Simulated scan of single mutants.
Amino acid sequence: MGESEKISVGIIGASGYGGVQLVRLLQEHPKAEVVYLGGKDSAGKPYAELYPHLGHQVNLTIEPIDTDAIAARCEVVFLGLPNGLACDLAPQLIEKGCKVLDLSADYRFKDLQTYTSWYHTERKDGETAAKAVYGLPELYREEIKSASLIGCPGCYPTASLMALSPLLKQGLIVPETAIIDAKSGTSGGGRQGKINLLLAEAEGSFGAYGVAKHRHTPEIEQVCSDLAGHEVRVQFTPHLLPMVRGILATVYATLRDPGLVRDDILTIYSAFYRSSPFVKILPNGVYPQTKWAAGTNLCYIGIETDPRTDRVIVLSAIDNLIKGQAGQAIQCLNLMMGWEETLGLPQLCFYP
């Protein structure tokens, strides 16, 4: 690829919040050009009809999903579809020579039985799924570089695993004591009309959902088990916050060595993430806020220890639509193409 050439990119499922984030970020990416937007219900509509604020920049019409046409025009395809649809399209696109980044849950699991039991969809694409790499660059950077299919992580697992990974990898905690208490803004529920996401329902309120049965639980456990070297189960409880963007995950766990203090763990985290440009370890006594990460691909991490309970408390803040979805997918694309990992991705929030 020459200096001035750009790779051609397609986005299937461009009408949702993940899709529009991809469109926005790729518009400003120096080495990628969006040439195809695909959808089912929205096919035939100008993209500017769905998102008028992009009309001066994006002059594309949403097209029907045709894998032959997509593969003929696109080197890379992002799939921003509901769970259970990417597994029909990805094998065809891979076979036709495209690199595929899937934002749904379809390619996040090594064991498709786990996927089927939680997402209630039978799978026939085991051969394709076996080639997929979990798209969390901070943990699987080298595997992503040589992959042609990426299963991009969920937003809650991203925030949770950023907080938990060093503790499990270094054997610092008793794994079964890990508890993840996480909160997300309403954009995590997508753009479809849902009663619990209406302003009149969500504003001024705060509550948990999916208690003891949220679908992101097995995804978190899969990576935790990989890091720990044995099966790990975690307690994960998500909550809905009355705001649009952001996730704050608070992780509690019992330390194996009660003598470890906050400075020790800060040193371990700084070393663990030393090659991760989007992870910002905060200094002593500073704890992250979602607003700091809004609109960026950053993950802010704060750490505390409690000598009274022998627990470590790790707090992680991300933008659920960027580092938790579209931005992380582009971070993976950068690695797959051999580009600078940070290319085209925002690192400064709008504040306040």
Rank of each mutant, 00 (worst) to 15 (best):
G10W: 01
G10A: 15
I11S: 03
I12G: 01
G18M: 01
V20L: 08
L22K: 04
V23F: 10
R24W: 07
P30D: 11
P30A: 11
E33W: 02
E33F: 00
G39Q: 03
G39C: 02
S42T: 08
A43S: 10
G44Y: 03
P52N: 09
G55I: 06
P64H: 06
P64V: 00
I65A: 02
A72C: 08
E75S: 13
V76M: 03
V76W: 04
L85D: 09
C87G: 13
P91N: 06
I94C: 02
E95M: 01
E95D: 14
K96R: 15
L103E: 03
Q113D: 15
Y119A: 03
P137Y: 01
R141Q: 14
L149R: 13
C155I: 00
S160Y: 05
L161M: 14
L161Y: 10
P166Q: 02
L167I: 09
L168W: 04
Q170V: 00
P175A: 04
T177E: 07
R191I: 12
I195C: 08
I195Y: 12
G204K: 06
F206L: 14
G207P: 03
Y209K: 10
G210P: 02
E219H: 09
E221N: 11
Q222F: 05
D226G: 09
D226E: 15
P242N: 11
M243F: 13
M243C: 14
G246C: 06
G246P: 05
L255D: 03
G259D: 11
D264M: 10
D264I: 06
D264E: 07
A271M: 08
S276N: 14
I281T: 02
V286R: 08
A294Q: 13
T296L: 04
L298I: 05
D306V: 09
R308S: 15
T309F: 12
D310L: 03
D310I: 02
D310N: 15
A317F: 00
D319T: 07
K323L: 14
A326K: 07
G327I: 06
L333T: 03
M337Y: 02
G344S: 11
Q347R: 15
